[in-house]
Amino acid sequence: MSVDTATVAKIASLARIRVSDAEIEAMVPELNGILAWVEQLGEVDVTGVEPMTAVIPNTLRLRDDVVNADPLTGGDIRDKVLANAPAAEHGFFGVPKVIE
C-alpha cells in the first residue's frame, strides 16, 4: 500500500497537523519509503499467533474508590491544573469559540 498526496493530506488532517502542499509533496516519497519497508512484515506467517497484549506477564491492578487518596492523582488542585494554560479565565480553560 502506498500513499498519495490526497492520503497524506487526509492523515495530516486526522492528526491535526497543518501541512503545506510543498510539505505534502516532500512527505509522500518519505512515507512511502517507510511504509514499503515495514510491509515486509506481511511475509511473516502469524497463523495462530495472538497479538501481544502485555510485554511482561502482568495483569491490571485496580485502585480503591477513594477521593484524593494520593494528592498527585487527586483533584482540588485547580491552580495547578490551570498554571500552564495559554488562556485561563474564571477557573476555566479558554479556547476559540466553538460553534456547535
Binding site: 500500500m1 500513499v3 497524506v8 492523515i11 492528526a15 497537523i17 512484515l41 511473516v44 502469524v46 497479538p51
Partner: peptide, 28 residues
C-alpha cells in the same frame, strides 16, 4: 513524520494489516 505514520497505520482499513500484524510479530 512519526505521528503521520502512526495515524496512517491505525486508520480505518489499515489497522489489521499493519498494527495487528505488528503485534503478532511482536509476540513471535
Amino acid at each position: 513524520r512519526r505521528i503521520l505514520i502512526g495515524t496512517y497505520v491505525l486508520s480505518a482499513g489499515f489497522y489489521d494489516a499493519y498494527y495487528t500484524q505488528a503485534q503478532k510479530v511482536r509476540t513471535l
